[in-house]
Write a protein that binds this DNA or RNA. Structure first.
Lengths: 192, 192
DNA sequence: GTCTATACCTGGATAGAC
DNA sequence: GTCTATCCAGGTATAGAC
């Protein structure tokens, strides 16, 4: 039963390196070095680099899904749940300043590679988009729930990008406050 | 006098490919193929790949600077100038849907490579940030001009990222409308 | 399941002829 | 200024021993 453990360790290491250095810039040697196995052994667990990417995306999907599920089952109101989403920027502040958003930067990279994994990365956006849409729907914003979801997703992405470009400034905290204020001002009435 | 032309053509081709495929994923052979020269000839014009990157960044800086200078000298009000900035998203809509923001995606990539060019890419953000700050300052927002500049920069970045992820949706136009409405509501009074 | 050794290719970079 | 030929490093992937 040692194999699954190694496989898991590889995914964890690859997940980290893909985030910190990017997918293409990360080599098998890099991952193998961290895991402490030989490059040859790698191919016992993953046939190609794309397979590791797929596994990393699945891992990220599972992680995020678990997080959203927890918020959903915690007895929070929909608004409080959306606030939790916004506060991800604060919880992961140090990493975002250093490497940007793990979802946004991965998508951006794969998009340029015209890589098939682009679809996988988009599923990460979809996960949040659909979940956010549901929350806005519950608030009563039935007609523009998706627009609001996309709006808050975009704001988060932009904040992550600029926080990465200007990591030593108070910008990130300021913007989170603005987003929470925006959320607070949301009323249970549709635009139309 | 043929040399400068070739050099210029190389920069133009590299600029396009770095945007469409990313810096690292673009090879000398790719650029040479478009320009129509041999790989060897390349090194007469640029000693290293980093030198091409520097030239591309300088080119982008000059292009954007010229655009901002034009708006500044066109007799527009500061608000109208900021609106012009926001409408970049519409002017370049097709490209943004296909490849994201040329500045944001370049920065994101170089950031992960811990590349020295990261500083160059940040200068592109700085160019817009300082210019936007000046416009908000002229409106009368002396105390939070920089915050407002960063806010609109971040919004633009986020919109570009998500428009790239969901290119076939009306999202981009919706968000531009929201940003213009936000701008319209700005009053000449400081927060403090 | 893990190792070493190695094949093979791509891509950056150099040398030197024209 | 442009070319061809070539070197070399790094990276994916395979073969086969242990």
């Amino acid at each position: 039963m040692a194999a699954p453990e190694t496989r898991d360790t590889i995914i964890t290491a690859a997940d980290r390196l893909f985030y910190e250095r990017g997918f293409e810039h990360t080599s098998f040697a890099d991952v193998a070095g961290i895991v402490g196995i030989s490059r040859g052994n790698f191919y016992y667990h993953f046939k190609t680099k794309d397979q590791i990417l797929d596994a990393v995306i699945e891992r990220r999907l599972a992680d995020r899904r678990a997080m959203l599920d927890q918020w959903t089952s915690e007895g929070l109101t929909p608004k409080q749940r959306i606030a939790s989403f916004i506060r991800i920027l604060l919880v992961n502040e140090a990493k975002i300043r250093a490497h940007g958003c793990p979802i946004g930067t991965l998508f951006s990279e794969l998009s340029k590679l015209d890589h098939s994994g682009e679809d996988g990365a988009r599923r990460l956006f979809d996960l949040f988009r659909i979940w956010l849409r549901q929350q806005f729907h519950k608030i009563g914003r039935r007609h523009d729930a998706d627009d609001l979801a996309m709006h808050i997703l975009a704001r988060s992405q932009g904040v992550a990008t600029l926080a990465n470009a200007y990591p030593d400034e108070a910008f990130l905290e300021n913007e989170v406050s603005l987003m929470l204020a925006w959320l607070d001002a949301i009323r249970a009435t549709d635009d139309t």
